[in-house]
Structure formats: C-alpha cells, structure tokens
Amino acid sequence: MRELIRTTDPTLIPFVTALLAGEDIDCFAMDVHMSALEGSIGILPRRLMVRDKDLFLARAILRDNGIDFEE
C-alpha cells in the first residue's frame, strides 16, 4: 500500500474515496481515530492509502479533479 494523500481536511478523505470508488480503486483510510488522542481539534493528518498498482491511476484522478497532493 502507498500513501495517496495526507490531509487535515475532514471532507477531503470521503470525497477522494468516492472518486476512487467510482473508478473501482480500493483505498484505505488510516489515522481516522486519532481524534481521540488529539481531542478532536483536527491537527493530526489522516492518510488515504491505495495499492501500489493503483497509485498511478489514483494520482491521475486527483489531478483531473484539481486535488493537490505530494508525490
């Protein structure tokens, strides 16, 4: 699994997950329960992971939809 995005924006993970699901790309959200440790203030980033073989296509989908990410 490779990291696709890392964000503190709580709306971005579900949006990207929906975009990837529309293209039949499985993804896995990590660090979603870190809010229990941080007190729900949203300072710890959450990550979205995809399979190695899907990374290129997933990044293309993000680019096509104007979503910034680090490579």
Rank of each mutant, 00 (worst) to 15 (best):
M34V: 11
T17P: 01
M30F: 13
A36P: 02
M34H: 05
L62K: 00
E3T: 15
E71A: 10
A29F: 02
V16M: 02
R63G: 05
A29V: 13
E3F: 01
V16W: 00
C27G: 06
T17D: 12
I25G: 08
D9M: 00
A60I: 07
R59A: 06
T8V: 15
M1F: 07
A18C: 09
D24E: 14
T8M: 08
F28Q: 10
L19D: 04
N65E: 11
D31A: 12
G42A: 08
D54N: 09
R2F: 09
E70L: 10
V32A: 12
N65R: 09
V16K: 12
D24R: 06
M49W: 13
T11C: 03
R46S: 12
I13N: 02
G22D: 04
A60E: 15
G42W: 09
G39N: 15
R47S: 15
F28I: 03
A58G: 11
L4D: 06
I61W: 07
D54E: 07
T11D: 15
I25C: 13
K53S: 09
R2C: 12
V16D: 02
L19N: 11
I13V: 15
M49Y: 14
D31Q: 14
I67A: 00
A29Q: 04
R51K: 13
S40Y: 15
G39F: 10
R6K: 14
F69R: 11
L4C: 03
F15H: 15
L19C: 08
I25R: 06
K53A: 08
L20C: 13
M30N: 03
P10W: 02
D9I: 04
N65G: 02
R59L: 06
L44G: 00
